[in-house]
Nucleic acid binder design. Structure first.
Lengths: 177, 177
DNA sequence: ATCTGAATAGTCAAACCTGACTATTCACAA
DNA sequence: TTGTGAATAGTCAGGTTTGACTATTCAGAT
């Protein structure tokens, strides 16, 4: 339900139609969520069916009427409940990028090393993109901060992984001690 | 395609029928992937349609015939290609748990703090579960190691977040400097 | 005045994923 | 030998997500 929570939280601040909402998410939260435009439309209909948002038709000129969504009272209650519930919960994430690590041993160490260096370069690039971002002040601050924190840790981890591949003996194996 | 890569990599080592495959994943990789049994069946059919795996009917007694899947040559080629491609790539993960952070400021700081403490306790619990796991040696070593590394960083980050909530002035705000 | 490409606004079929369900076999206790 | 619960093996309807598509409006170039 986290995506629903996000939509509720945004609509709570200001009423919007689907396109604006999706645009807002893409521009402000693009680095923190994978919610796509078509998913947003889908979820808006679901929220409307649940009575958590309502909409009015906004007929401007001859173009197809836009649905302008706003939070209902039931929606506000749901938002409050979901916010608390999900703030207290911890869900371990799954890293799809980790799957190839399970088969690294099938490659010549030198090749694996080269590929991991590519990966680390991509991660480093991504991190500097994030750091360079317009530093827009807003509710996404903590989300971005966490993402940065995560990436910094990833870079360290990838470096250690590479060091292990270079000289397995002098560097600790994963779960060792 | 990472999930497909995982299935290919497992079938490459040994031919299996759907149930064994799903069981293997659940037991050995449960903490690292969210691949479910029914998804495995779905993907197996997809892989078969693509010609990357083939199956033989294994009729034992009166029970419905089991499909025993094995890697084809095309599957081996695909595996080699996908392994290199995904080992070199970096895909930023999205943390659904971060979404509520965007709305933390709507709660009284004391309440937010309490909820975050719950979250950190859950994360710590999860970490010790992982650490206590049977330390099965296998190809999943690096995946588990990464997960542990990630969780350690998460705990530190949550602690800092809590400290900031307790005394915003003396602890740095997210993107500050 | 008209043309063109970008921005706006949204739809839809197809792909993906999952929980809940069915059905058989097996171990073993009663 | 019969009943019971766990393990085995898989299916399927329904929910979710997405890329690709349509269609309108608008700003500025020609």
């Amino acid at each position: 339900m986290e995506k629903e929570l996000l939509l509720l939280g945004i609509l709570r601040r200001q009423e919007l139609h689907g396109y604006r909402l999706a645009e807002f998410i893409e521009h402000n939260l693009g680095s923190c969520t994978d919610l796509k435009k078509s998913t947003a439309y889908y979820l808006l209909e679901k929220l409307a069916a649940a009575g958590w948002v309502a909409f009015t038709q906004d007929q401007a000129g001859k173009r197809p009427a836009r649905r302008v969504y706003r939070l209902t009272e039931a929606g506000e209650a749901a938002f409050q409940r979901l916010l608390r519930q999900h703030l207290a919960a911890f869900t371990p994430p799954y890293f799809t990028d980790d799957i190839p690590l399970a088969f690294m041993d099938l490659l010549p160490p030198a090749e694996a090393l080269g590929l991991l260096e590519e990966r680390r370069a991509a991660a480093a690039e991504h991190l500097s993109q994030l750091r360079a971002a317009p530093a827009h002040p807003g509710p996404a601050q903590w989300m971005v901060a966490h993402q940065i924190r995560f990436l910094e840790n990833e870079l360290l981890w990838l470096q250690e992984l590479e060091e292990h591949l270079q000289s397995p003996s002098t560097h600790p194996t994963p779960l060792s001690e």
